[in-house]
């Protein structure tokens, strides 16, 4: 479970994240949606312990985010982050050295599924290959919480399907998956909850089935409802 209370991250006075209260439950797959600069990445980084909040608190399984919670969270940043001197095999060994929940075998299997070779050098990978290898290494951890920031960025249609399958396999009864993406349609197939971020605030957190039943709105409809109005205002 991830819980944020009065969580603020400000850069030079501008609030990148300003969440009054947000609770994400285990056993669910959350899609974190919103335009660029809405605070998705900063929120994930705070939950991963990479960014320190300006004020407020954030908890992982009831414990404040700290060194010990890092072992419960498998976070995939949106950027390529492997050391340039590594091969994909080195990257896997690095994770094996640091994370007890990492399975090198699963990683290797996923790389094969994604048509990647462990001997490939990180510096020679295309953006699509980098994106696929990041997903594989993150999902090869049997962590309580997986957070993938823009997992479909730079990936073609077929690879997107492969990644969707991997994500769905990783989802489990007691696990929490949090994915951010601009590709709302792709997320519709995977997620069962959605968090809509706007100007650093979590403006809505909905159960998708309930929303569909009660309002007839899909994830994308709701997205258009929240952000479409803003776009129209700008256009006017």
């Amino acid at each position: 479970m991830i819980e944020a209370n009065k969580l603020v991250k400000a850069y030079l006075g501008k609030r990148a994240v300003d969440i009054d209260h947000l609770q994400l439950q285990n056993g669910r797959v959350y899609a974190m949606l919103g335009p660029n600069g809405s605070g998705k990445t900063t929120f994930m980084k705070m939950a991963a312990g990479l960014v320190k909040p300006t004020s407020g608190s954030i908890y992982v399984d009831g414990a404040p985010v700290s060194v010990s919670t890092r072992s419960m969270v498998a976070y995939m940043p949106t950027e390529g982050y492997f050391y340039q001197w590594m091969t994909l095999s080195d990257a896997g060994k690095y994770y094996q050295d640091f994370f007890e929940d990492f399975s090198y075998l699963d990683y290797e299997r996923m790389l094969i599924d994604l048509e990647l070779d462990v001997k490939m050098k990180v510096k020679t990978l295309s953006s699509g290959m980098t994106a696929k290898s990041k997903v594989a290494i993150t999902l090869a951890r049997n962590a309580q919480i997986h957070m993938l920031d823009e997992p479909f960025n730079g990936i073609d249609l077929l690879a997107r399907d492969q990644i969707k399958n991997l994500v769905m396999q990783a989802a489990g009864r007691d696990k929490l998956l949090l994915l951010s993406s601009h590709m709302v349609e792709e997320m519709e197939d995977i997620a069962n909850s959605a968090i809509y971020m706007k100007d650093g605030k979590a403006v809505d957190c909905v159960d998708l089935k309930t929303m569909r039943r009660e309002t007839g709105l899909s994830m994308a409809d709701k997205y258009r409802q929240i952000y479409g109005a803003a776009h129209q205002e700008v256009a006017l």
């Binding site: 990479l50 060194v67 890092r70 940043p77 950027e79 982050y81 492997f82 640091f98």
Partner: peptide, 13 residues
């Protein structure tokens, strides 16, 4: 740089 994530994501203080 982004490579720093490799280090600071590890469960070490």
């Amino acid at each position: 740089t982004k490579q720093g994530y490799m280090l600071y994501m590890t469960p070490h203080s």
